[in-house]
């Protein structure tokens, strides 16, 4: 009788407590390290799944193939937007690589029809916000002498750990407070008209 009560009432909270301790001690996944000397912006966001025409696996490209973010998102260092690569860039590799996979066959179909997949925007800020990728990449990568192979740390400040995702999901709030706190911590401009105009 007593044992039954222990099992029913005492054990579950104890087990929960122990598991919480374990989880807090060793989180399920190590957070992406911030680049040296940078105070990362604070905040998380549970973004919804975005249905893309092809489930592009970021995890395979980054973890297995070790492709740099800026190899495909090549406009990040040159313009306001990071850009989606043209289908021809995908085909540069996928003419030869993994041609038997259904996703690649779908991609090849698009390429042969001379259409681009209608990718959906995941990290979208409102029209009255003017964010420039090139200025951020220059400050945190090129001016800070960060090795370019570590650029994912800088991207991760606002995009989170994309390499742990298949299809990209929004997991940082990208709100004004999120931006502004980071600007204050890292010496960014505080002028309203820098971002809103």
């Amino acid at each position: 009788m007593f044992y039954k009560h222990v099992c029913k009432l005492v054990l579950p909270p104890v087990l929960m407590f122990v598991s919480m301790l374990l989880m807090s001690g060793a989180p399920a996944r190590a957070e992406l390290a911030a680049p040296p000397g940078v105070t990362p912006p604070v905040g998380t966001y549970a973004g919804a799944d975005v249905a893309q025409p092809i489930e592009f696996p970021h995890d395979i490209h980054v973890n297995v193939n070790k492709i740099n973010c800026m190899y495909c998102h090549t406009y990040a260092r040159r313009s306001k937007v990071a850009g989606i690569p043209p289908t021809s860039k995908c085909m540069g590799c996928h003419k030869m690589i993994a041609t038997d996979k259904p996703r690649i066959q779908k991609l090849t179909e698009y390429f042969e029809k001379r259409e681009s997949p209608k990718w959906k925007k995941v990290h979208d800020v409102p029209d009255f916000v003017h964010f420039s990728h090139e200025r951020h990449v220059k400050k945190f990568v090129f001016d800070a002498d960060l090795p370019v192979e570590n650029v994912e740390q800088v991207c991760g400040l606002c995009h989170g750990e994309i390499k742990a995702m298949t299809v990209a999901k929004k997991n940082k709030p990208l709100t004004m407070g999120f931006c502004q706190r980071c600007h204050e911590a890292n010496g960014g401009p505080g002028d309203c008209w820098k971002c809103h105009k």
Binding site: D127, F128, H130, S132, E134, R135, K138, W193, K194, H196, K197
Partner: peptide, 30 residues
Amino acid sequence: PDISVRDKGVMEKCTFCVQRIRTANDKAKM
């Protein structure tokens, strides 16, 4: 696209083409 399209209920005025100033400033800083 470099400047907001305003909705009703807000005041607006000449900005000395701030979008051009900011673009030139960004370019110079780059």
